[in-house]
């Protein structure tokens, strides 16, 4: 079995640079890095704090050949970018990661153990400040019930797992883990509101599911009132690659004004949801990047779910597939119109 350093060094023989991680974040957690030489690659690591979706950098590196370390979920973004012909399959080498067993929510560690506490996050165990803790308790919400454990595409395969991989084998295990850790019940309303809502099984998602339209309107108004128009959601999104011509910042057509208020922020997110229809792979980077904790994935996950129901389509799982809104089915399309 190869370690990540030697795989990256090998791939560097074919490409200009490799996107990966070094352990240079606070407390030794992973921070994204790019490696151009074998010597630089000596510092590469892979562990369960490698949460970032590095595919976001690929459209900006189109003129180079790039290697990328990609978890199962990240590989869907790479696949979707190839599907949209935004990047060229021949110019990207994917180092797919298998057997990670879910990644760790570092912010949760910081919240309970202090910022910068030493973290050692492996595929089957988690040590905080040298002491072993229950890994399940600190898994990212989006990793619970993961459907993308194996990379969709890869040129090299990196087996992350050591001997045993804990948890997230099936939905039942997730349920048990959730109830054991009390994650499903112990959050206060304020925590639930500030915590990101990545899917409907979460406390916030449950809350949201029970609301009626008027309550949801109020809910979003309240959420969007915190928006500071930093565009972090857009910058962190691998599928938001229009950059210079983003309609959220144009005055012609004038979809959103420049004001920082809930109404403008709402329009901004409606644009994002709409533009990511059939393209969003649900990686959750927009929500993770949001500095004011707006639960953006409530909308994205809902839309992905509807698209799967209507069109049987999941973005970035099939290089040959045609995105559902770029095609139609004369007889098969469901119709609620009359």
């Amino acid at each position: 079995m190869s370690d990540i350093v030697s795989i990256i060094q090998r791939v560097l023989g074919d490409v200009d640079l490799v996107l990966g991680w070094t352990a240079t974040g606070a407390g030794g957690v992973a921070a994204p890095a790019r490696f151009q030489t074998a010597a630089e690659a000596e510092r590469a690591v892979f562990n369960a704090t490698c949460v970032h979706n590095l595919a976001v950098h690929l459209p900006r590196l189109k003129d180079q050949t790039v290697g990328i370390v990609a978890k199962g979920c990240d590989s869907r973004s790479v696949a979707q970018l190839i599907q949209e012909r935004e990047i060229d399959r021949d110019r990207v080498k994917v180092i797919g990661v298998r057997g990670l067993g879910g990644s760790i929510d570092v912010r949760k560690i910081w919240r309970f153990h202090g910022y910068g506490v030493p973290v050692d996050a492996r595929t089957d165990s988690l040590f905080i400040d040298g002491k072993e803790v229950d890994r399940q308790e600190f898994l990212r919400q989006k990793c619970l019930g993961c459907r993308d454990m194996d990379p969709v595409i890869y040129d090299e395969l990196f087996e992350a797992s050591g001997s045993s991989i804990t948890g997230i084998a099936d939905a039942a295990t997730v349920e048990t883990a959730l109830s054991e850790t009390g994650l499903g019940t112990s959050l206060t309303a304020a925590e639930a509101m500030s915590a990101a809502g990545e899917d409907e099984s979460r406390p916030l998602g449950e809350l949201f599911a029970k609301m009626n339209s008027a309550e949801r309107r109020l809910f979003w108004r309240e959420q969007y009132s915190r928006c500071i128009r930093c565009y972090a959601c857009r910058e962190a999104c691998p599928m938001c690659f229009c950059r210079d011509v983003c309609i959220m910042q144009t005055t012609d057509p004038h979809w959103t004004g420049a004001g920082v208020d809930a109404g403008e922020a709402e329009m901004m997110q409606l644009i994002r949801v709409n533009h990511l229809a059939g393209r969003c792979t649900g990686c959750g980077e927009c929500e993770r990047a949001c500095p004011v904790g707006i639960p953006l994935m409530l909308l994205m996950n809902k839309q992905n779910q509807v698209i799967e129901e209507l069109f049987g389509y999941r973005a970035g799982t099939d290089l040959e597939a045609r995105p559902p809104l770029l095609t139609f089915d004369i007889k098969g399309d469901s119709r609620s119109e009359k």
Partner: peptide
């Protein structure tokens, strides 16, 4: 074929409206 594309988009939109609070 314009209305065939519209049919898909609008069907998706109508199912998303509740999540937007409409």
């Amino acid at each position: 074929e314009g209305n065939y594309y519209a049919r898909r988009r609008l069907e998706l939109l109508s199912r998303m409206l509740p999540a937007f609070g409409i």
